[in-house]
Design a protein around this nucleic acid. Structure first.
Length: 196
DNA sequence: TAGTTGATCGTCT
DNA sequence: GACGATCAACTAA
């Protein structure tokens, strides 16, 4: 499976968000390779978007959002969680796509360990990665991964199944308080691994 | 099943 | 000093 080229990420953010559905997200940790299908994302359009971290321009925190498309923006929130975004469009433009959920494919045992589920009561497999912070924990993505180039070898995205238009669901984003909320959340219809 | 709350801290006001 | 692109545990019914 071939890595998506830089040009994939340099396109309009909404387009990239939709096209990321069905693609395969890879995470290499040492010799171990984790893998999952992207099933849910949200677009954040920087200066045009009051809900975006980049709405008020560049700060130390959102610096990575302004990198060239194809980098990773990881932020820390609620005092305990990390969330990962795929940076889109050209350098200097603060747009990104939040990865909200994946369907685990490979390295599931390692994901369970990362999520510290070992000694817990058996859970549905979806609980492993069906939320932006869960996904990061399962894949071992944290502060150090902020700014990672997705054309590198640690974290990257490659082609997956092609998703027919009819399989893509659209809805308002989750956890946004702004009244001007747009329908910028995209997910795979019928997937059991989408967040609630 | 729905609704509420505690955890916990970096960032921006 | 307030609060958040969240989650899990808890309560009530």
């Amino acid at each position: 499976m071939k890595k998506l080229p830089r040009s994939f990420y340099l396109r309009p953010t909404i387009t990239v968000a939709r096209d990321l559905l069905g693609k395969t997200l890879y995470r290499r940790i040492g010799k171990k390779l984790l893998r999952g299908i992207i099933v849910e994302v949200e677009a954040y359009l920087g200066e045009k978007d009051p809900a975006s971290h980049a709405y008020r321009g560049r700060t130390k925190r959102n610096e990575a959002m302004f990198k060239k498309g194809g980098h990773l923006y990881v932020y820390f929130t609620y005092g305990m969680h990390f969330c990962a975004n795929v940076v889109t469009e050209d350098e200097g433009i603060g747009h990104a796509v939040l990865l909200r959920a994946i369907e685990p494919i490979e390295g599931i045992h390692i994901m369970e360990r990362n999520r510290k589920m070992e000694d817990r009561i058996r859970r549905v497999q979806a609980a492993l990665t069906n939320g932006p912070a869960k996904l990061c924990q399962a894949l071992g993505i944290a502060r150090e991964e902020n700014g990672t180039d997705l054309l590198g070898h640690e974290i990257f995205i490659a082609g997956g199944k092609t998703v027919p238009r009819s399989q893509i669901g659209i809805s308002p984003r989750i956890g946004i308080r702004n009244a001007t909320e747009k329908k910028w959340r995209f997910y795979l219809r019928g997937s059991n691994f989408v967040s609630r």
